[in-house]
Design a protein around this nucleic acid. Structure first.
Lengths: 199, 199
DNA sequence: TATATAATTGAGTATTCACTCAGTAATAGA
DNA sequence: TCTATTACTGAGTGAATACTCAATTATATA
């Protein structure tokens, strides 16, 4: 029995924060400005997030969730590993190109000193199905000898990131970059001769 | 005719800054603390660097130079491309493991909003020989079709980074990671069947 | 409709911090 | 040795900003 908080306001705060963090960096985006752009009073921001660090941690989880959703929606569970990886590759790439600010903020967040261990763990949670798939493929010996799962998923991520940057700077070659990036990734992780019948 | 500046003091400032930036992040490392750890008065810091942003930009160039030196010293100009890349791979890896703070600061700097275009350009300059090598190898068609040079150098960098992180978390497997990381990189960039005679 | 509860507001506060500057010390060149 | 020039010092300053709080407003429930 009381006045409820508004999901809309919370989202407006997160969106304004995303915009400002992307433009000015985490520390040069004052809460006063975030509030203003979110269309609320500064005090209100602190009923939704106890501190600015809290806001930052919440935003991190939110963005990781968005990215995971983008990557895993329509995930082709029935197809072979290559198709699955290509699906994830394409979705990640699309998300990054369509959401440059979110992507930039995420990059800043990953190296910032404000993320708690809890947030980092929570940020990884939406990717468990992806991780499991990698683990399964390793057990089936689909990949090059003894490549650790972490190296595979990080390679995917960093190669996508590099490919996005290239695409942004030369949009006309988008499709070419998308394909050669993935080929490079796939050739890197799979055994050298397997030219047919990957599972 | 006057009192000269001291190279030692300048270095002490850069070292203190590196330590503090690594521990607390760029913005939570006050100039007062940097000065104290460098063993000088706060005012002195500003005779060596006009502003804090200047200091940050100078540190970026310094660290890039250190890394390039580490990578390119004893560079085997006479050997084949694979050996050259393996050399760079190993040196980069060694540097990263031996200099965790420098590496962390560099990661923060790359995504920060304070680097000027000039600094970014200057940071790339020490790597021209490496870039040239990649360009030559591309002309000789040693690599997979149409892989852009930028994708190749960024892949090397990000795969080394991933490998360093793995190594730090499981030092006992250092050699294994080092090798499989490089194999993955090499297989990714070269044409699939070329199992012999790479140049 | 009445009311208890919680959200909202925005001016105010306390703190932090990059940078300054007047006084002092060192040194290169004459 | 003398002196012009610059480095060095550290207390002080002004600006920025995360967060508070007393007053006000909205709303879920009875």
């Amino acid at each position: 029995m009381a006045r409820p908080r508004s999901e809309d306001k919370r989202n407006a705060i997160l969106e304004a924060a995303t915009r400002l963090f992307a433009e000015r960096g985490l520390t040069d985006a004052p809460t006063s400005e975030i509030s203003k752009q979110a269309g609320i009073a500064e005090g209100t921001l602190f009923t939704y997030f106890k501190t600015k660090d809290d806001l930052i941690n919440a935003l991190y989880r939110e963005l990781k969730l968005e990215l995971a959703d983008a990557m895993m929606s329509d995930f082709p569970r029935k197809k072979n590993v290559r198709s699955k990886l290509r699906h994830v590759w394409d979705r990640y790439l699309n998300w990054g190109i369509a959401n440059p600010k979110q992507r930039k903020v995420l990059a800043q967040l990953q190296v910032s000193e404000v993320l708690t261990k809890e947030s980092k763990d929570a940020g990884g949670a939406p990717f468990v199905e992806f991780q499991t798939m990698i683990g399964d493929a390793i057990e089936q010996r689909l990949f090059r000898n003894d490549l650790p799962a972490e190296l595979i998923s990080r390679s995917l991520a960093t190669l996508v990131e590099a490919t996005i940057d290239l695409t942004v700077s030369k949009p006309s070659k988008a499709d070419k970059y998308r394909d050669s990036g993935f080929q490079m990734f796939w050739a890197g992780i799979t055994k050298s001769r397997s030219r047919t019948s990957y599972k």
